[in-house]
Amino acid sequence: MSATAIVDAERVTVDRWPQGGRRAAVACLVVLAGLAVLPFAASGWMVDKLTMLFVFMLLAAMWNLLAGYAGVVSVGQQAFFGVAAYFALRAVAGGMPPYAALLAGAVGAAAVAWVMSFFLLRLKDGEFAIATWVVAEALRILVMLDPMVQGETGTSLIALNNVEPQLRRNLGYWFALVSLATAGIAAFVLVRRRVGSAAQAIRDDDEAAAAVGVRVFVTRQAIFVLAAFGCGLAGVAWLASAITFLPRTHFGVQWTVFMLFMVLVGGLRSFEGPFVGALLLFALQELAGDFGAWYLAGLGAVAILFALYLPDGLWGWVRARAGWTFLPTGVRISVRRASDPPTQT
């Protein structure tokens, strides 16, 4: 049979939920529901830890969206992590209720990303990467100029101190969980729809993509803004949990090191991979976080090794070996041979 054949449309079925994908999606929703009620049953310590895990997962998912799906390597996402927290603090100082301010902060980060995208997205590869870093540094300096921030000393989300500790902890937990769920679902939907295919086409060959009508810039911009919004949510979630805002920490490049590790080790270009990576990072933080600098050096080394030798990460390796897919991000197209009887649909 030759490689190209005209196929009757009736014989083609497009399956968007292959291999038990429906079951996987339902399972995820069940897990989310379980997590939502967890604070009523679990200890405060667990709630805090899980909040941190959600933040990691959110960051990983966003970075993967950029690098794995849109082919855009940003080493400056901490800009949005930090600037969202800053805007939140400013909003609170301006009189907004704290949790609304957190959301406003993330929206503010997305707005900054939108403005910058017109200029940043014209750059390519390495130039773009460093430019994002420069922007992060520039934003940090600007933020530190604000007297409210008090330079290196930073400030705190004092308004939250008025909330009773357990409630505050739980609210922070739910905020992070909802952020993660929303961003995760948005990313999932995005990837499955045309924007996702468009993005992958751009990632693979932007000229070819444009030639088949993909609106390259708008697609990239949409993903860039969404990723910034997600990182902003992570930043304010962190702020709600930690209460204090230290510019060097919030705008620090270690967040990018973490994102890099999570995505590379978990699996670039797969939807589930970053979540695996986040779990792993979280576990490592708990076990080895005390080792300080050597720990971070180790993370970097492991990320390099994965990049060179196992570029699809742990999940990609598992996926290739065992043939699993968990959440369906692609489609399976089956063509009935002319000799097959028609199926009941």
Binding site: V73, D125, G126, V257, A301, I304, A307, L308
Partner: peptide, 8 residues
Amino acid sequence: LPLLVTFG
């Protein structure tokens, strides 16, 4: 990859 590796 070069960006990621050199960053690491």
